[in-house]
């Protein structure tokens, strides 16, 4: 685990300021907001969030780690998300995932050392007609193939 970069406290204050002090029920919404600000949930932000909402740090950590949508580590510049829904599975998603693991050189769920890529799975985005589907930096690549992914990832590597 790499040391986490320091974060901009002003930005954090702005996010936390929107929540009532002591309102523990806002925890998950607050985690979403912190994450949209920093793209992940920095340790310091979690601890400050705990203080703001008046809940224990262990509860914040337990909750943040429970949900797949929250990231506790910094993420890559490019995010490749492979849909692993059933429709995509029967249309060959596992092979695409393995292919991306090889192309990018990281295992699913990981971020490359230089923070260029994050490779992850999503349970289903509900765009089953497009299966198998890979989302790269927010763009949906539907009915995709290993060759197509090689091309897209290759371009990102060069940038």
């Amino acid at each position: 685990m790499a040391a986490q970069p320091t974060i901009d406290t002003q930005r954090l204050d702005a996010v936390l300021g929107a929540f009532e002090p002591g309102d523990g029920s806002a925890l998950i919404e607050a985690l979403h907001d912190v994450q949209s600000e920093f793209k992940y949930l920095p340790e310091e932000a979690l601890d400050r969030l705990a203080d703001r909402l008046g809940v224990s740090k262990s509860r914040v950590y337990g909750v943040a780690s429970f949900y797949e949508g929250f990231h506790l580590e910094p993420r890559g510049e490019h995010i490749c998300t492979v849909c692993m829904g059933t429709a995509c599975h029967v249309r060959g998603a596992p092979r695409l995932l393995e292919h991306l693991e090889r192309e990018i050189g990281i295992a699913s769920g990981q971020t490359s050392e230089d923070l260029t890529f994050t490779l992850e799975e999503v349970a289903c985005v509900g765009a089953c007609a497009l299966g198998p589907l890979v989302i790269i930096d927010g763009k949906y690549h539907g009915n995709t193939t290993t060759s197509h992914l090689t091309k897209v990832v290759g371009k990102l590597k060069k940038d």
Binding site: E43, L46, K57, S58, R59, Y61, G62, F66
Partner: peptide, 19 residues
């Protein structure tokens, strides 16, 4: 004290302290 947490879920769940 609330020093401990169940971290993560499913088969990956474990008991630990914050961070």
């Amino acid at each position: 004290h609330s020093a401990l947490a169940a971290v993560s879920r499913g088969g990956k769940k474990y008991i630990g302290t914050p961070h």
